[in-house]
């Protein structure tokens, strides 16, 4: 298992959080901590999450899968404080 810290911006749409959490559970991602709060922009929320990945699964892969979710605006890997930004 490898630990990663991700930060997401998502639209305040019903079901957005559910879709992210279901992605974690269906792809076998272990969630260590998760916190949701308002972002600067009123129509967005910020989700900070620490996850454990199974051997062989990369954070880049997970970030791209999160990026496919329509209501996810961006995903940043904060594990090493070097940000990999993915526009959505």
């Amino acid at each position: 298992m490898t630990r990663h810290s991700l930060s997401l911006l998502l639209r305040n749409e019903p079901g957005a959080l559910a879709r992210i959490v279901v992605l974690f559970s269906s792809r076998g991602v272990d969630v260590e901590s998760l916190s949701l709060g308002p972002a600067e922009r009123g129509d967005l929320s910020r989700l900070d999450v620490v996850v454990d990945l199974q051997p062989g699964r990369t954070p880049a892969q997970l970030i791209k899968q999160l990026g496919r979710i329509v209501d996810v605006k961006s995903v940043v890997d904060r594990t090493h404080d070097e940000a990999i930004e993915l526009g959505a």
Binding site: P14, G15, A18, R19, V22, L23, S26, R68, I69, V70, D71
Partner: peptide
């Protein structure tokens, strides 16, 4: 919507 979360690209209510 919840039942189909992992098998839809997106959903609306």
């Amino acid at each position: 919507r919840s039942i189909t979360l992992p098998i839809t690209k997106h959903s609306f209510q």
